[in-house]
Design a protein around this nucleic acid. Structure first.
Lengths: 195, 195
DNA sequence: CCCGTTGTGTGATGACCGTTCCACTATACT
DNA sequence: AGTATAGTGGAACGGTCATCACACAACGGG
């Protein structure tokens, strides 16, 4: 019973997610959220409790709708030999794409890590888990590809992805070059390490 | 002529630098600066023009007193064969040190890159130059060490250092592991690639 | 129809932000 | 000693922030 919600929660969260992604938690004001979502403060506070609540929902949505779909080929019971290379090439393509919104936003979570909100224990924990999930997926990918020293390769890939996301915000070309360098390790251009 | 300054500019800039380093530009308020530097707003504004002016001075100080001294062995006319490994081990030691201030602050410039202030063109330019300086130094180090594909190795090192700095803020152990992984590439534990 | 319940709109709250203004102080030169 | 000059202290500025309080609107069940 009672009045029914006039907005679609998922849509609102997606709009907020985009905003937080591009500008970061502290640079997005509640009026900004009102404008981007099309609903008023009172509805936001009623549905999410606080600005921070909106951010938490955006982070959840980011993990579920952005991060995990791309990681899934590296997480299933069967991992293809070229899954790791596929992931890195896909990310490379996304960063090289040129659309400022997608390319220059980097990673919502890594941006949060270096921001004030990153000092919050809960946020730090999420970022920690994100890195661990990345690393575990890359290790499985390296194992599936049959590379030597998969643990080390996984760390190098994690490192490349993290720095690519950070560099994306100031120098997309260098972000791409970073992924190319690690692709040279994972998929050597001319014969050799393939298992 | 006129009244003489009661504070040492370099000391004030260092104090501001530490604060910006640990907390980021936007999370440091002018009252925070007053407390950390021991001088009042009026003096800060008289000497630096604005909060942003203080930040710019802090960035300059960071480059000159923190970044370049560590990079110098990789920039002189003669670069030792172990200069690159020395740099990476030195950074590793600093991050593993455990003192929260030094270890968990990451890099002042990279933190700025993902923050709102990073969207400022001048700041982005400085960060861009910083990354280029890192990369050039690492390439010279790789060449001096006689590694194969010095350009690629330099990119891998830059990537590792960038991600180590970012991870330092949320997971110092993983930051160290990242440097270890790239050290495994630059200085293989058992024989082989030495030139 | 009426009422309980839930969602929405509007306006105000106190706190803090970076910046500015102005009176006062201390120095160096004449 | 007198004065122009530069530095300092303190109070105040308008603006924006996140949050809240309260009245009104729409729905379901009696």
């Amino acid at each position: 019973m009672g009045r029914v919600q006039t907005f679609d929660t998922a849509t609102v969260v997606r709009a907020a997610r985009t905003l937080f992604w591009e500008r970061g938690y502290e640079d997005v004001s509640v009026p900004d959220l009102e404008e981007a979502t099309g609903i008023r403060r009172s509805s936001l506070y009623h549905a999410f409790g606080s600005k921070r609540g909106v951010f938490d929902a955006a982070v959840e949505s980011y993990l579920e709708d952005v991060v995990r779909p791309r990681l899934r080929p590296l997480q299933g019971p069967d991992v293809a030999a070229d899954a790791l290379v596929g992931y890195l090439r896909g990310l490379r393509a996304a960063l090289a794409d040129g659309r400022p919104a997608a390319a220059q936003a980097g990673c919502l979570l890594l941006n949060a890590a270096t921001a004030p909100v990153g000092r919050d224990e809960a946020v730090a924990q999420v970022v920690h888990g994100y890195r661990a999930e990345l690393h575990a997926a890359f290790r499985r990918g390296a194992q599936a590809a049959g590379t030597a020293a998969p643990e080390q390769v996984a760390t190098l890939c994690t490192s490349a992805v993290v720095s690519a996301f950070v560099l994306a915000r100031i120098d997309p070309d260098e972000a791409v070059a970073t992924l190319d360098a690690v692709l040279g390790v994972v998929a050597p251009p001319a014969g050799g390490a393939g298992g």
